[in-house]
Each structure stands twice: as structure tokens, then as C-alpha cells.
Computed example of a mutant assay.
Amino acid sequence: MAQSERIAEFRASSYGVDGVAARMRALGDDWPPRDGVAVFNRVYLSVTEEVARHLGHGVFPDARSTVTLNVCFAERYFAAVEAAADGRRPPACWRPLFQYRRHPGVLPLQFALAGINAHIGHDLAFALVDACHLLGCEPADLEDEFDRVGDVLVCLEEHIREELMPGPDLLQVGDPLTHLAGSWSLERARDGAWASGRALWALRDLPGVAEEFGERLDGAVGLVGRILLTPLPD
């Protein structure tokens, strides 16, 4: 879909952060709790609800920019879900999660991290560009909103690891899950998304180069997701 068409679609169906949360709840109702995409959806819903609370308390000075960035961000996830549901291929970054979503050897923490990896590592960069087009601004104008949303994500990632990681009495330092969980960092992924988003924005007048850059980013993030979803022995 062309950028202008995405913008028109966004404006026609803009519903804010509360609307995003409502869509996530509806999706979650249709999936078994153990489903890998459902696991990520619950994580993402908790992030969205936290952002909504922060908006309600005035934590984000520029509410319009924050809402726009968050809705653009969520639309990337919803598009991947719709593609998979329609039998189309979602972006490469999302394919491992949809392929392994019912694998009995993959643990909930792995599903959560793989989804976060796809959404932060790939979608956030493109959402930044989408938001800049919608708001008529540069990425630098959204840096504060980007960082504040990132701070919420980092705090919730810590909570997710505590909630989904088996207790320390069940894991050893050399345990495969300990190794996998410790090999990925949301903060590094967020920093990478900011750099990728700025690069995509700088390449906006070079569509061929921008497309190639986006495809390479998509594939690289998908490879990390596949590693995170390595089935583990009982």
C-alpha cells in the first residue's frame, strides 16, 4: 500500500490508544491462552494500557504525537495478524512467531520475546516514518515521545521476564532458556529501531534504496526471532 493510502486509511479509522487496546482484547478472545501470538498479544495489551494510563496522567506532554506514534506502531502488528489470518505472508520478522505459535517445545517467554523483537526491531522504525508523514515533522521532533514510550517498554519487559521466566531454582546459568533470554535486549533493539527509522526517513526520496534497506532489516529481525523461538528440551 502506498504511503498516501496508508495515511488516508489511518485518518479514516483513527481510534486512539483505547481503540488499539480494544482491538487487542478482541483478538485475544479468539485465541487459546497458550497460543504464541496470544502470549505476545497479552504482553502488548499490557504495554498499551500502560501508555494509556500515562497519557491520562499527562506524562506525555505532546499527546497528539504520542497517540499517532502508538497507533502507527500498532497498525503494523495488526497488519501482520490480518495477513496471517488471510493466508498471506506476513513480514519476515513476524513469520517465525506465526509458524511456531503452537509448537509445544517453545515456552511463553520465548513467544513474548520473539513478538517484541519483531515489533520493536522492525515495526517501530517504520511506525516512526509513518508518524512523521502524518504529523508533517522530522524524526528528531518525535524523539522525546519515542524515548518515553521506550521507557515504558523497558520497564514492562523486566516485568515480563519476571513473570514468564521459570524460577531461579529451576534454571541454571547454562540453561538454554537463560541463554536465549539473556541474548536479546529491548534497549538495544529500541536504539536500533531509532537508527533504522532515521535512515528510512533520510532515504524517503530514494524509494528503491529504502525498499532494499527495509527488506534487509526485515530479514535480519526475522532471523533473530527464529533463534529466540528455538524449541527447548523438557
Rank of each mutant, 00 (worst) to 15 (best):
L177E: 01
V152N: 01
D205K: 03
A195G: 03
C137H: 03
G105C: 04
G87N: 07
P168Y: 08
Q110G: 08
C93P: 01
D123A: 13
L107A: 07
F126A: 10
L177R: 06
L200W: 00
A181C: 10
A199F: 02
Y77G: 01
F111P: 11
P168F: 09
A127C: 03
A193R: 13
E158R: 12
E163Y: 01
A85R: 15
V106R: 14
F126C: 05
R102K: 13
D169I: 10
P104V: 02
D151M: 08
V71Y: 06
V81A: 09
W201H: 05
H159F: 06
R188M: 01
E187A: 11
L200E: 05
T66Y: 11
R148V: 02
G208R: 14
A92Q: 12
Y77H: 04
E158F: 02
V81H: 11
C93R: 09
D205F: 03
A83C: 03
G167W: 04
D151T: 08
E187Y: 02
A202D: 06
R95M: 05
D86H: 12
A202W: 00
Y100A: 15
W194C: 09
H159R: 13
A127H: 02
P168R: 13
A79H: 13
G121C: 11
D175V: 00
A85W: 07
A181G: 08
N70Y: 13
A79G: 10
E162C: 10
R95H: 03
V106D: 14
P90W: 12
D144L: 15
A193F: 13
E75Q: 14
L97S: 05
D169V: 13
L135K: 09
S196R: 07
D169M: 10
Y77L: 12
R76Y: 09
L164P: 00
H119T: 04
P176I: 05
P139L: 01
A112D: 09
H133L: 06
D123F: 05
G87V: 05
E162T: 14
C137S: 00
L128R: 01
P207N: 04
C137G: 01
G182R: 13
E162N: 11
L170Y: 07
L69M: 11
P139I: 00
P96Q: 06
E158M: 05
E163H: 04
A112Q: 12
V81E: 09
H179I: 14
L128M: 07
G87M: 10
A210Y: 12
A112V: 11
Y100Q: 15
L113P: 08
L180D: 08
E143D: 04
Q99W: 08
N117C: 12
R190F: 06
F111Q: 11
L134V: 04
F78L: 14
H133G: 00
A125D: 07
A127F: 00
A85I: 04
H133N: 05
E162K: 14
C72W: 04
D141R: 15
R204T: 02
A195K: 14
C93H: 04
R89L: 07
E211N: 14
A189I: 11
S196C: 05
G136S: 07
R95K: 06
H119L: 05
L97V: 01
T178G: 08
W184L: 09
A202V: 01
A127Y: 02
A210N: 13
A84G: 00
D130V: 00
F111K: 10
R89K: 06
